[in-house]
Simulated assay, not measured.
Amino acid sequence: MAFKNINLDENIVLKNRIPLLIEDKDWLKLFGNVSNKDIQYLKEELMELVKIRKELEKKEQSFQEEKTLAIKMILGISNAVNNENKTHSVGLLDKYKEKIENINEELDEIVYQLETIPQEIRELNFNLLKATVYYGYKELKDKEKKLKEVNDELDSMRERIKILINEKYDYEERVNLTYSFLHGLLGSEEIEKLDEQILD
């Protein structure tokens, strides 16, 4: 991974508001499908991490909804036990309390993961930026070299075209002058006869 040697200031990401590259239209257009293994590897890792984050956020929301429902059930059951003397519902109360404890454990794990993932995403995105800069500069140098070759060839072709155009004008002028001279000397009838005799 040669890009690792590139010395970029990590603060540049914040200062220049560098986006998540895999979600940036310009980056995707320029580098999304290049055949560079570092870029492709980091892109896939980043996509996977973003996918995991979204899944965790969905899970967190789902558990929060379950927890809210369980709390409502506990409040309802507590009310029934305390105010309506329905003591047979006490077992249900324990069941929902246990459910909330399990949900809280799950939520703690999810929240922990959701707190660590952004840093991993930032690091991967920064490495992808470095790989992009490394690849981009190499490609720039290569394309500049090819552009110079194309420009040199175009200059050479322009020069050749200029020479050919001058030759064309010289030949046209010579042809016209010769015809005019012969036509003036011999007349059009003789010229037509000579055209048939000599040119056919």
Rank of each mutant, 00 (worst) to 15 (best):
S78Q: 10
N83C: 00
N102K: 14
V111I: 15
Q113L: 15
T68Y: 09
I74S: 06
L93T: 08
D108H: 05
D108I: 06
I103V: 01
D108M: 12
I100F: 03
D108K: 13
K99D: 03
I77Y: 01
I77P: 01
E84L: 15
N79W: 05
I100G: 01
V81R: 03
M73N: 09
E98V: 06
I103R: 01
L93Y: 08
K72G: 12
K95Q: 11
S62H: 06
D94E: 13
G76V: 03
I71D: 01
S78C: 05
I100W: 03
L69T: 15
A80T: 04
S89R: 14
G91S: 12
N82R: 10
E106C: 00
K67D: 13
F63Q: 13
K99F: 00
N104C: 03
Q64Y: 13
L107V: 04
L92Q: 12
V81K: 04
A70V: 07
L93D: 08
L75K: 04
L92E: 09
Y96R: 08
E66L: 15
N79V: 01
K97R: 13
E66D: 14
N104H: 02
N79Y: 09
I74Q: 07
K86D: 11
E98R: 11
M73Y: 06
S78A: 11
E101Y: 12
N82Q: 10
G76E: 11
V90G: 04
N102F: 11
L75T: 00
D94T: 14
D108N: 12
N82K: 13
I100S: 03
K72P: 03
I103G: 02
S62Y: 10
I71K: 05
L93R: 13
Q64W: 11
F63H: 15
H88C: 02
K72E: 13
F63Y: 15
L92Y: 00
H88N: 07
I77F: 05
N85S: 08
F63I: 03
E66S: 14
I110W: 02
H88M: 07
N102W: 08
Y112V: 02
